[in-house]
Nucleic acid binder design. Structure first.
Lengths: 107, 107
DNA sequence: TAATATTGTTGCAATGTTGCGCAACTGTGC
DNA sequence: GCACAGTTGCGCAACATTGCAACAATATTA
């Protein structure tokens, strides 16, 4: 590491950005249980279908999710399950942050 | 997994959001090499110091980075190195996406 | 001690980006 | 034709990013 061109960081940021939304994280979580179509996801959210469609587009654009058309429906699949390990780390961040704030509160 | 309240996704999204910026990813990458003060980071970026200060604030707020004051300087430290494993995954996503686009181009 | 430089933060305004619903649209199946 | 599954154009509100200028706090130097 160390010397790295800005393009790499921009590419990474694009992936992170796609995951920087509670709605999209919930979609990924749902897809971790297997293929789903938008019509199955929709009842889980209090969102207009156009909005949900756009969120899915974001995930597709960075390659986290792929699409398989079947008649009128398009089934979505999680392409990179390692995303799930990211969750473990974010939870670790949250726990570490909670500990730190505890220490500050006691001091 | 499966049934999870929206708060968890929001908490995760806050962490991801903090990492959804090329500038902040570069800061984290630099801090993976050990403690740095802002004055050391500044030359690496073509940004006003106020802007850089604010990016660092974002990383501190979610607990990814901690601060240790020493005189006029404040040294920054990466609190959760598992963040680095997130990078491996994002690179995996990018590679998978590249493969997929290759396939589409050939078809 | 007083002036000056270094290190970093904060208020402000301009600009850019994101998330959202509505309405209109395409395509599929009955 | 009509319902179902998704997508796209549009406008709006909220939020993020940025530089400038002013600030506080520490360090250095005269």
């Amino acid at each position: 590491m160390g010397a790295m061109n800005m393009e790499k960081f921009q590419a990474r940021a694009r992936v992170m950005k796609a995951l920087a939304s509670p709605v999209r994280l919930k979609i990924v979580d749902e897809l971790s249980g297997g293929e789903r179509c938008m019509c199955e996801l929709q009842p889980l959210f209090d969102l207009n279908k156009s909005t949900l469609s756009r969120h899915i587009t974001v995930l597709k654009q960075v390659g986290i999710v792929s699409e398989r058309r079947e008649g009128a429906r398009s089934f979505l699949k999680l392409e990179t399950p390692c995303i799930l390990s990211v969750f473990d780390c974010t939870m670790g961040v949250l726990r570490a942050d909670a500990r730190q704030k505890m220490r500050l509160a006691q001091a």
